[in-house]
Every structure is written in C-alpha cells, then in structure tokens.
Simulated assay, not measured.
Amino acid sequence: MSTGPRRATFFANSKSTSSAASTTNPHLQAALETKIADKIQEQASLIELRDLSKNLYAQLEKMLAELESLESGTEVVAQIMDHWNSVLRTISLASTSILSREESARQSSQGPSKDDDELQRKAKLPEKLVRMPLTN
C-alpha cells in the first residue's frame, strides 16, 4: 500500500515541476508554442493535400473512362478506314466495267438498230454490286 501514495506524490511533483518550468522559462514556452503552431500548419497542409489528392484521383478516373470510350471509338474508325479501301476498289471496278461496256457497245454498233439502243441502255446502267465477305 505504500506504492499508492508514492504515485500520487510523483504526479503531483511532476505537475508542479512542469508548471514551474513553464513559468520560469518563457523561452522554452515560446519554442513549444512555435512547434505546436508549426504542427497545426503542417496538419492543415496535409489535409489540403489529401483533399487535392482526392480531387486529382476523381479527375483521373473520369479521364480514364473517357479514354476507354475514345479507344473503342478509335477501333471503330480504324475498321471503317480498313473498309474504305475495299469500297473504293469496288467502285473502281464497277466504273471500269461500265466504261468497258460502253466501249464494246460503240465498237459493235455499225448502224442504228433496235439491238444497239438496248445495248446503249444496258451500258448506261451501273454494274450490279454484291457484297460478299472475303474472310470467314
């Protein structure tokens, strides 16, 4: 039981020495207040940094979603561009076929007849284009 009162006197002595030290050494008190103010400022800066980091994270997530949609759009554009080559080639073939028909119709006609009129009418019609996949 002798330890109980000793603890009480120890705490009482520590309070009196800390208050006595703070009153006797104003330079130490000012240094502690400065350190506390610096820590409060550091905490405020860290809170601001945390908030800015959250905003940056949200913006980056939004940007990621937009980039994913752009990526899929880019793939579609690439597919369309791949198809344009075959479309232009098909148009070229069709126009070449029309020109060759007109030329053959001119060479075969020797005089105006009913068959020549029909050949000219057929020559003016475009070539029938059928869409068939080239790859399976």
Rank of each mutant, 00 (worst) to 15 (best):
N25S: 08
E103P: 00
E68A: 05
P112L: 14
L56E: 12
R50S: 11
V130N: 06
I80M: 09
S2C: 06
P133M: 02
Q107G: 02
A31Q: 12
Q41G: 02
E118R: 05
A12H: 09
S108D: 13
S18W: 00
K15W: 07
G4S: 09
G73H: 01
S113Y: 11
F11E: 11
T24F: 02
Y57G: 06
D117S: 05
I91C: 08
L60M: 07
L52C: 00
R89A: 08
E102K: 05
T3A: 13
A8F: 12
N13V: 02
E75K: 15
S113P: 10
E71Q: 08
Q120N: 01
M63L: 12
A105E: 07
V87P: 03
L52K: 13
I91V: 11
A31M: 06
A44C: 01
R7L: 04
S97Y: 08
S92P: 05
K35T: 13
A94P: 13
L70R: 09
D117V: 10
V77D: 06
S108E: 12
L28M: 03
E66K: 14
L49C: 02
I40T: 15
E103F: 10
P5I: 07
Y57M: 10
S45H: 08
L56P: 00
T90V: 06
M132A: 07
E127K: 04
T17V: 04
T90W: 01
T96S: 14
D38T: 15
L56W: 06
W84F: 11
E66S: 14
L70C: 04
Q107I: 15
S95W: 10
E75M: 12
R50Q: 10
N85S: 14
M63D: 10
V76S: 01
E118W: 04
A21R: 09
Q79M: 09
L93I: 05
S72H: 07
L99D: 08
T135K: 14
L134G: 05
S109V: 13
D116M: 03
P133V: 02
G111N: 14
H83A: 13
Q79C: 02
Q29K: 11
M132K: 15
Q41F: 06
E66A: 10
D115Q: 12
L119Q: 05
N85C: 01
S22K: 09
L70M: 07
E68L: 04
L52W: 00
L32N: 03
R7D: 07
S18R: 02
E61H: 03
V77K: 14
L119G: 00
I80A: 13
K124N: 01
R6E: 11
M81P: 00
Q120Y: 04
K54F: 02
Q43N: 09
P126K: 02
G111W: 14
E102L: 10
L52H: 03
S16E: 10
M132Y: 04
P133N: 10
Q110K: 15
L46W: 07
S92C: 05
